[in-house]
């Protein structure tokens, strides 16, 4: 019974982690930059949901739509402000890492000043009352809804990338930025859209964070970025299905650890990350990350 529970809970969490990783994956795939502030946008999504509920009693499912639009719009000017200067530099990957770390610190500080340091949570009943039984196991209703919303978002990204004109161009930029530029694609515009979409996905994942992760605090961002990074490292880059796979592998192993080796569970993401980077970095990521 414990094993089945861990597997099912892991699968639900896996979908959620897939959503959390998807935005980071998209930004990395298109721009080859590491958005270390990814988790901080998740944090902002969580606080948006909290305040929208507190002020106008907005249900988190609607907050998710609002956050989607807001963060996507926010992403466009942010892209033009931060990314093109980076791409002109000698080592954009490394510089982006440091730049977005600074950005993450600034966001965290502003959030702590604006919202205070305490933990904020949303009542679980907003996403359905009582436990929902799946295959004889009882799960919080909020989990089920978060899982469904995550699956829907992943599906939408899949449809966008593989069945829309802009998505086709996005994949072309992922494939080879120089060549895309040569064939006359407006690379910056496509990238800016992808950047906005990445932030929007982080925001949506953030809206469900109080339900999946318990609560939200201004300092939660860096940990979430790391977890998202683990997920996309396990899965493969530029492929939403790969991220789903990564999310589920991560979710199930996490729940498995919590069930059988609870005090060691928090060690898992770090060990998993190092091991996979060392054992199969290029295979799993679909690009060269080693050098001499």
């Amino acid at each position: 019974m414990m094993l089945e529970y861990a597997l099912l809970a892991g699968a639900i969490f896996g979908l959620y982690f897939a959503l959390a990783g998807l935005g980071l994956n998209l930004v990395f795939g298109v721009m080859r930059i590491v958005n270390l502030a990814h988790g901080d946008f998740m944090m902002l999504g969580a606080f948006s949901a909290f305040w929208l509920f507190r002020l106008i009693h907005l249900n988190p499912l609607f907050s998710a739509l609002f956050v989607l639009a807001l963060f996507a719009l926010l992403g466009l000017p942010l892209y033009y402000l931060l990314v093109p200067p980076l791409l002109r530099a000698k080592d954009p990957e490394m510089l982006s890492f440091i730049l977005f770390f600074g950005f993450s610190q600034a966001i965290e500080a502003l959030a702590a000043i604006a919202f205070g340091p305490s933990e904020r949570s949303l009542p679980g009943r907003l996403l359905g009352r009582g436990p929902i039984r799946i295959l004889g196991q009882a799960f919080p209703a909020a989990w089920t809804w978060s899982g469904i919303a995550s699956a829907a978002a992943v599906l939408a990204v899949y449809l966008y990338l593989y069945h829309s004109r802009l998505g086709y161009l996005t994949r072309a930029v992922m494939e080879d930025r120089e060549e895309a530029l040569a064939t006359g694609i407006d690379v910056h515009f496509v990238s800016a859209i992808a950047f906005g979409l990445g932030l929007a996905l982080a925001g949506i994942a953030g809206v469900f964070a109080p339900f999946m992760l318990g609560s939200a605090t201004p300092s939660m961002g860096l940990g979430l970025t790391l977890q998202s990074f683990v997920v996309i490292v396990i899965g493969s880059l530029g492929n939403p299905l790969g991220t789903v796979l990564g999310g589920i592998i991560y979710g199930v192993s996490l729940m498995f650890m919590q069930t059988y080796f609870s005090s060691w569970a928090s060690l898992l993401p770090y060990v998993l990350l190092i091991l996979i980077l060392l054992v199969r970095p290029s295979g799993l990521l679909g690009r060269q990350v080693r050098r001499a």
Binding site: M94, S266, L267, V271, L273, L277, L278, P281, R290
Partner: peptide, 21 residues
């Protein structure tokens, strides 16, 4: 064996792992 950002993140994860142990 890892390049730039991967090395940075992996070394970060390693420090966390030691702390957790």
């Amino acid at each position: 064996r890892l390049s730039g950002a991967y090395f940075a993140i992996a070394s970060f994860a390693a420090a966390f792992a030691v702390y957790e142990v």
